[in-house]
Design a protein around this nucleic acid. Structure first.
Lengths: 339, 339
DNA sequence: CTGAAAGCGCTTACAG
DNA sequence: CTGAAAGCGCTTACAG
């Protein structure tokens, strides 16, 4: 086993100074051609690669970006990571991923760890608990230390920084409008608990679409689900008692559960009940029937977030407080559940 | 904006030496109590946190482990990451995730990048292309430099290192046996192209189960799929021409595609056709009918892999070449597709 | 053209 | 009890 070779060893081996080796390898014209080539050949032979850690310390930047997400076993977040990776790699950045598991404490811990020099900037989507507590001191602190942060999807107005989101309200509006256009009259909403930022916005879009079309808003048609695994009764009650003809679900897990429940009580989707879901993922594509969804491109979000972060990292004047919020386009993917 | 504070600044501020500050913060009894407490109070007030990069350089270890996977938008790999994260965090390690996108070049690039000092050890699942080329020099090189590597799931016998796998062959055998036990006679296999290591092993298990039960092995009942999106014709041909009554699919994407195709040509699953799949994921749970699967716990694999890596990293005698291969238990999750 | 020195932020063996 | 020095692996302004 041969440990990785260092400049020092090369210098010793070749009987020159460390500076000379360093400069030679960076192809500095300061060094005579003969020496330069000799050093380069030697380094190549021994497969010399500069130590990232030493470079980071020296340059005071790591060329790494940290991304903190609530949950990796979520198609949407995985695609965002893919998007971040793409542009990060293009720009020579590596990506460090940490998971908050939707826990405030883990989110804080991970941020603190990464903030201590490991990365140059953050991309983050807030954990549920953080949104619930509305405590963002760990984020503002990092920003105050001069480390740029880009938030995506689950963001908050309480922190000033770059953000990338979709227009949740407009997208929800469009989805509900499409149901109305298909002649559906009694449209239920199945959503998350209130403190999840995107849930609230989607509810607003739903409400607005109804009102704009002169459909009475009915509180009873809105169901807030805490845990997908224990919601079947609630859902079957909604389906049986309210005589609805369409459901707008804020995610595909809710949607598929609704479809399965509907089937059980003898309702046909889409004939008796149209179902539309937010967030296009793997389930919608492979469910039977396949589910019409609002597609929010995680890849595009990731691309954009990474781009914004890197732009800021590489900006000349560091102190530009001109924060932007980018909106990613969504579109409706029509499938069998709303035929 | 106040940049992160350093030992140097604290020393200057308090008019003591850097050594004194460092020792005080590490609570060394070498330092007088008064000074120690003063320094600690000051550091706490300014929220001092040591710089990870500097520590890494000094200690020549990073307390970070790198994980390289082919694809993150795969439920299985996501769960492995979760498993790795869990035990890594418990032991104070952070996790750096890189994606190979099933490309050899990206895998090599990512390994080289991480190997240059960014991490203490690797957890890796080989990319398809790497398995196809059977070129593992980048891995052996890293190992030769003294950096421990743990391979999981998609492994190779050509590299000596710790590994964690499931017994693909035995699990496949069990799955096929369960079909036979249910009275199925003509069982097809839908698998991947040959160079994917797990695909081959699962095929072996399939074959063995047939032979052990006196069922003739028929080459024509094995289909190798390169791309899920263009395989419908191949599958419907298999279903129509071969009069099979069961299919063993090596992953759930294949399984759900088979079910959908079967439905189209008027076959009922499970009545006319039983379907069983390898790799329990989100699709199997939400498909209609739900799919019976061989569950390979990604979380357990990740736990185990991380444990093995960390054990090696923290072992006293560095040069223990006693590599182990751990086998993770699988079990059958019976669902509707084989009722 | 080459090299000694300082420094990135830390720790620790050694002197005083 | 405190601090100067050396060192982790690198780069670069400066001297010669």
């Amino acid at each position: 086993m041969k440990r990785k070779i260092t400049l020092k060893q090369i210098a010793k081996e070749l009987d020159v100074s460390i500076s000379t080796v360093s400069k030679s390898l960076r192809n500095s014209l300061e060094i005579g051609e003969e020496t330069r080539l000799k050093v380069q050949a030697f380094a190549k032979f021994y497969n010399y690669k500069p130590n990232n850690i030493a470079l980071s310390l020296k340059n005071r930047k790591t060329k790494a970006i940290g991304i903190i997400i609530p949950e990796i076993v979520h198609h949407f977040f995985s695609t965002v990571i893919n998007g971040v990776e793409q542009v990060a790699n293009e720009h020579g950045y590596s990506v460090i991923i940490c998971l908050s598991d939707d826990s405030f404490d883990k989110e804080v811990l991970n941020m603190e760890m990464l903030a201590n020099g490991s990365i140059d900037g953050f991309i983050i989507s807030l954990s549920k608990e953080t949104q619930f507590k509305a405590d963002f001191h760990h984020i503002t602190e990092v920003i105050n230390q001069g480390m740029p942060v880009v938030m995506f999807d689950r963001v908050t107005n309480d922190v000033l920084c770059d953000k990338v989101i979709i227009d949740d309200q407009a997208a929800a509006y469009e989805a509900v409008q499409s149901l109305i256009d298909k002649g559906r009259k009694k449209i239920a909403l199945v959503t998350t608990v209130d403190y999840v930022s995107v849930g609230k916005l989607r509810t607003d879009g739903y409400t607005k679409a109804l009102l704009d079309n002169g459909i009475p808003f009915n509180e009873d048609l809105i169901i807030k689900i805490e845990d997908v695994n224990t919601c079947e009764i609630t859902i079957s009650k909604l389906l049986e008692d309210k005589a609805i003809d369409a459901v707008f679900a804020v995610n595909e897990l809710f949607a598929v559960t609704i479809i399965k429940t509907a089937n059980k009580i003898g309702l046909n989707v889409p004939k008796d009940l149209a179902v539309i879901a937010f967030t296009d993922g793997i389930i919608s594509k492979y469910s039977t029937p396949t589910i019409t969804t609002v597609s929010q491109s995680g890849v595009k979000m990731g691309n954009k977030a990474a781009k914004m972060l890197i732009d800021r990292l590489e900006a000349e004047d560091e102190e530009d407080e001109n924060y932007k919020t980018e909106i990613i386009e969504t579109h409706l993917i029509e499938r069998e559940s709303t035929l």
